[in-house]
Design a binder for these strands. Structure first.
Lengths: 201, 201
DNA sequence: TGGGTCATGTACCAATTGGTACACTCGCGA
DNA sequence: TCGCGAGTGTACCAATTGGTACATGACCCA
């Protein structure tokens, strides 16, 4: 009831709603990445992160709102991966792709990747808390990837198609990896893709 | 209530029971493909397909068992797609890929494809009813695809990697299509892939 | 005709869910 | 010192869940 984010003196040591909310949602994303979002209950989540379900309702208003925040935060984490990619200039497109693949397949991110596919499933079903990610699911990644293609001399007309293809392939192989755990096999397929995509070294 | 298609004078009563199960599970898959499997409840499912939740328990023992049957039936439908692919011999690998893509992106299958990703999400989370599909998720498709690669003269050493890559790309683009609905954009990316994969015509 | 099996519906149960009401504590300004 | 408002826990609520007990009714075999 008091989710007024308009707190001008928020940084004056006032550890208030916003900080607590952010902290809670962060813990919630961790928990959800580890245990799934499908059968999440406020009580179990609360018990796991050390608050009562009463407080979750208090801070987020409803489970629905909390889910929205969780999805947003998870999306923000994904985007963090993307921006870290930008932080390394002068990388060839192949280098960018390899780096993306490396980062995405880091076993420590497995939970988050699983959560990604889980949320996709919900969004595809029209669940209101997950639907917003559909907007940026492809578009947000297409921009930088296509830009990299163009910068590397790709035909502008096909840059978007190539970017889209690369993104889809990475995600498809990621799903394969999560499902089979066959790291070597999936890596080999990725190498095959890079060979086709950028030509043999 | 109404044992419409089952003829009592045929065989013994057991057949009726099996038929009824198959009929129920078929209707259940339809419903689940249309409305999602996440928040499925026996009561709602029963109301949708015209039986009481009591009967679902009676025929399947538990919700868990019913889910197992639903997942199996859904898997069987997917496999039907695969076998229809086999039914057309003499197709070039590019032709097979195109055909696969055509079939998968048929709008009438959208619900089933969504269900596929939904079940994947559950399986990735270790849900017991969905986990079994992880076995065949990649392997079952790899065999015929790799065989087609070899038959078309591909290097046997890379045939599996190429098959794996093709499968992943198709699935990634399918996810893209379901998420964005941008048929033209996704088709263009697919064409780009085919060009890379099989070379320009 | 009568007994018995089986399919089905009704009513119910305990557990869990999201959400609310109220009481309590604690820090801060007057 | 008081009081007041924010943060928190406890107890509770109605709704929904999967699952069960029992009655009913249709059908088959003798």
């Amino acid at each position: 009831m008091h989710r007024d984010d308009a707190h001008p003196e928020g940084e004056a040591g006032h550890v208030t709603d916003r900080d607590r909310r952010a902290q809670l949602v962060d813990a919630a994303v961790d928990h959800v990445a580890a245990h799934g979002i499908v059968d999440l209950s406020l009580r179990r989540l609360g018990a796991a992160i050390g608050v009562s379900h009463r407080m979750l309702i208090h801070y987020f208003g409803s489970k629905e709102q909390l889910l929205v925040e969780i999805v947003r935060a998870s999306e923000r984490r994904q985007r963090g991966l993307l921006s870290r990619l930008h932080a390394e200039p002068g990388l060839s497109p192949a280098g960018v792709a390899r780096r993306l693949w490396q980062q995405l397949t880091d076993p420590r991110l497995a939970g988050q990747e699983r959560l990604f596919f889980e949320i996709c499933g919900h969004a595809l079903r029209g669940r209101p808390e997950a639907v917003p990610i559909l907007e940026g699911l492809v578009a947000d990644w297409l921009e930088p990837l296509a830009a990299a293609e163009v910068a590397a001399g790709a035909d502008p007309a096909t840059a978007y198609s190539r970017a889209r293809l690369g993104l889809a392939t990475v995600r498809g192989l990621l799903l394969d990896l999560l499902a089979t755990g066959d790291r070597a096999g999936v890596d080999a397929a990725m190498e095959e893709f890079l060979r086709l995509y950028y030509g043999p070294e």
